[in-house]
């Protein structure tokens, strides 16, 4: 059972690696940003599986914090790339 869980984690790491390529290639900032966000999501998934494998409920908190802070970073990304650095792409469009 545990072996299967770790194999699943390795599979998830594969998606992380693929997203790393996206961050590297770009070509524009939105692509890099999406790649990083995808890795955030993969990280949350891995954290949840690891918590299951270790049978440690407190590890779920790590997934929770990762998810929360990833969305926070996403907002910061969006802000940074907006026209005046303080705006909202929806206003610009």
């Amino acid at each position: 059972m545990d072996e299967f869980l770790y194999l699943a984690c390795i599979g998830l790491l594969g998606t992380v690696a693929a997203s790393l390529v996206r961050v590297h290639l770009g070509p524009n900032r939105a692509d890099r940003m999406m790649g990083a966000q995808l890795i955030g999501t993969g990280g949350v998934a891995i954290a949840l599986v690891l918590a299951g494998a270790a049978r440690d409920a407190s590890m779920i908190d790590v997934a929770l914090v990762l998810a929360l802070l990833a969305s926070f970073a996403a907002v910061a990304f969006v802000k940074a790339t907006s026209a005046d650095g303080a705006g909202d792409p929806e206003e610009d469009g």
Binding site: V16, S19, L20, V23, H24, G26, R29, R32, M33, G35, A36, I39, G40, G43, I46, A47, L50, A51, A54, D56, S58, M59, D61, V62, V65, L66, A70, A73
Partner: peptide
């Protein structure tokens, strides 16, 4: 440079996972 910052954030997520594997959940948080 923007890609570097994105890579750094990714790196932080991976390191948090490493701390889980080391059983250091407080540090992972």
């Amino acid at each position: 440079l923007f890609a570097s910052v994105a890579f750094y954030i990714v790196y932080g997520i991976l390191i948090a996972l490493a701390w889980m594997r080391l059983g250091a959940v407080d540090v992972a948080l």
